[in-house]
Amino acid sequence: MNTVIAAVLLLTGLGVLFGIGLAVASRKLAVETDPRVDEIERLLPGANCGACGYPGCRGLAEAIVEGSAPVNACPVSTDCAPIAEVMGVEALACERQVAKVRCIGGKKEAKERFAYVGSKDCFAAHQLAGGPKACEYGCLGLGSCVEACPFSAISINENGLAVVDEEKCTGCGQCVSACPRDLIALLPAGDPVTVYCRNTEKGGVVRKICRTGCIGCGICVKQCDQGAITLENNLAVIDPEKCNRCGRCIAKCPVKVIHGTVDEKLTAAAVSGGK
């Protein structure tokens, strides 16, 4: 009987002792945190995707409170106004951004140099003599971005190209760094007018290897009266901030490499204006 009592007493004693010890320690060693950190963390998406460059949403919340990150530093969050309110500052522009794969030269349009049977990884394929595609700038369609996407927003279509589902995309930017060819960029949501090609070779070279590659002819630059299109290294680049979505470049592009949703009213005006 004595052993039972001794066992119960000793374990209870130890338990109580440790309990009190921990309780005292948690009081003495309490770390004061800014209540705003918790509040902002609640307002952030909580996916801990790391797109902001901080370790998780809590890391960003701490940085915002500290003042080392702006209130709209989260590329995923669609609305930064509540966070701005917590911090007591004016809300900056909080436009939603989505990823876009800037290549539309798939199996049908672009030529292949050799049959690739290696591992299903764009980096591996890219390092193997520049990849199986004749175009060294185009989408390899092996799905490194698909794997990188934490929101299952990217898929490879039947034409062997990566496409982003704008609805599912949160603009976290993980795929941007997953693409060995730098094809994916974060652009404003709503299907902006974009040149879907990154090939900087001269026109003749591009024509031989891909039917929908930008040949750098400059027709779109002349069409644009907003000055939104520039030619850099034989490649047309559209500034989405200047573009007013008139759609004339889309209509005139000889290789049909420019796509995007067009403002119908502006297109009608352009046609009736006789241009």
């Binding site: 066992a7 000793l10 374990l11 130890l14 440790f18 010890g21 921990l22 948690s26």
Partner: peptide, 26 residues
């Protein structure tokens, strides 16, 4: 000392759990 050697496993679990908590706080 109390002749309770057979309680070692359960006591050690207790000690380790408390220790980890404590180390985390420190």
């Amino acid at each position: 000392r109390f002749n309770l050697g057979y309680l070692d496993t359960i006591t050690f679990i207790l000690v380790i759990a408390v220790l980890v908590q404590f180390v985390e706080m420190i």
